[in-house]
């Protein structure tokens, strides 16, 4: 018997949005690396002023939020709706902590007189991380709507479509950060 591939998780329209977002972020990442070729010293010196601790903690927070989203989908598939909503709330809490830390990081830089016009490195730093920051906020809003509906019992074990759609978007936000953290904070 022919084995068919399993269906993609979530909505097809969301996957087209994900592909478009990945394309944009991918172009930004490559542009950063290419522009750096002629500005190595400036990029390296500026990079050393970034808070790597905050970057690493934020990476762990996003990874953990994604883990909770996966657990929420598994719980819903087992018809444990309350447990599923609790996992989603835990994911929202982790994601919100990410936003809080990133906001503090932006505040630190702004207070030190550093902004998007300081140099080319900071132009990329602010452009990329702010762009990602707004995606995290949008992801949190989507997760919150799904969590609320799950908590109210709108979804049953065979109705994981909305949660998988929200989850796919959230994982994309995570995937992008996984490249952004080493690229902007670490690799010299």
């Amino acid at each position: 018997m022919k084995k068919y591939p399993k269906p993609i998780p979530g909505d097809l329209a969301m996957w087209f949005i994900i592909f478009a977002e990945l394309l944009v972020f991918g172009i930004f990442f490559i542009a950063y690396a290419v522009v750096r070729i002629n500005n190595v010293d400036m990029f390296n010196d500026s990079q050393l002023t970034l808070n790597r601790e905050m970057g690493a903690i934020n990476t762990i927070l996003l990874i953990t939020a994604s883990y909770f989203v996966v657990m929420a989908i598994h719980a819903l598939k087992n018809n444990k709706t309350k447990k599923s909503s609790h996992y989603l709330y835990a994911a929202i809490a982790s994601g919100s902590l990410f936003i809080l830390i990133k906001t503090l990081e932006f505040h630190d830089k702004m207070s030190a007189g550093i902004d998007i016009g300081t140099n080319t490195f900071y132009m990329f730093y602010f452009l990329l991380t702010l762009f990602h920051y707004f995606h995290v906020i949008l992801g949190l809003m989507i997760l919150f709507v799904v969590a609320l509906k799950t908590w109210k019992g709108h979804y049953k074990a065979d109705q994981t479509h909305a949660m998988e759609t929200a989850g796919s978007y959230w994982h994309m936000v995570d995937l992008v950060w996984i490249i952004m953290f080493p690229l902007i904070y670490v690799v010299r």
Partner: peptide, 9 residues
């Protein structure tokens, strides 16, 4: 593992 794309097209 997170996006669960193992086994999709």
């Amino acid at each position: 593992d997170y996006m669960e794309l193992k086994g999709v097209s």
